[in-house]
């Protein structure tokens, strides 16, 4: 069944966002990594870069496909998961944990309220589903 942690928020592009004391950790969902298949490369911005909500902040490549990563919120990228450069397959193995991608210090924290809740994301998947 769908693996959609209740405490996270989601985008329709299959990123997740997690509140961590005012900062937002970002990754891609279990569904996204499953659709991509074996992830072989993740291109992320450098710490200090600007992220803009709904705009691409990076790229994930699997054996078959290349896909943009979209920022759930705007702000400054304050942390980047450099471990993915050497071990991109972590995104498949642990998409909500060690497979995280960036941490954003949001410039417009209210954007959080515009993200999908777990149940909304689940419904979205069901509607668009295969």
């Amino acid at each position: 069944m769908a693996n959609i942690p209740a405490e996270l928020r989601y985008t329709k592009d299959h990123e997740w966002a997690k509140q961590e004391g005012g900062r937002i950790r970002v990754g891609i969902t279990h569904f996204a990594q499953e659709q991509l298949g074996d992830v072989v490369f993740v291109e992320l911005p450098k710490a200090g870069a600007r992220a803009t909500a709904k705009k691409a902040f990076g790229v994930v490549e699997s054996v078959k496909a290349v896909s943009d990563l979209f920022a759930p919120l705007s702000g400054e990228v304050v942390e980047v998961n450099d471990a993915l450069a050497k071990a991109p397959e972590t995104v498949n193995g642990d998409p909500y944990g060690k497979g995280w991608m960036i941490v954003i210090a949001p410039s417009a924290p209210r954007e959080w309220d515009g993200l999908l809740t777990a149940s909304q994301y689940e419904e979205f998947l069901a509607q668009s589903g295969p």
Partner: peptide, 9 residues
């Protein structure tokens, strides 16, 4: 079928 369990596997 493009894959069953995963392309690399």
């Amino acid at each position: 079928p493009v894959q069953y369990t995963g392309i690399v596997e």
